[in-house]
Amino acid sequence: MTAHDETLDCKGLQCPMPVIKTKLKMDTMEAGKVLRMITSDPGSCKDIPAWAERVGHTLISTENTDEGFVFLLQRGD
């Protein structure tokens, strides 16, 4: 597993909640820090990368695991 600073579990939540919770979490983090976020909502799979690109966070990786979709996001400036 790649190194990360924070984790956020959004399993069981539907759109728009995974993006809302991820945004709130990222707002508390410093630039350059990495969040490991997990969601079970297939809709969020396209939205998280699109949102991250829009607001300037870096999507380090996306992985489809048994637990759900795992995103590693690095906070932008």
Binding site: C15, P16, V19, K23, D47, A50, W51, R54, V55
Partner: peptide
């Protein structure tokens, strides 16, 4: 207008 723009 993606919904996450309204969030951000």
């Amino acid at each position: 207008i993606p919904y996450f723009d309204f969030i951000e």
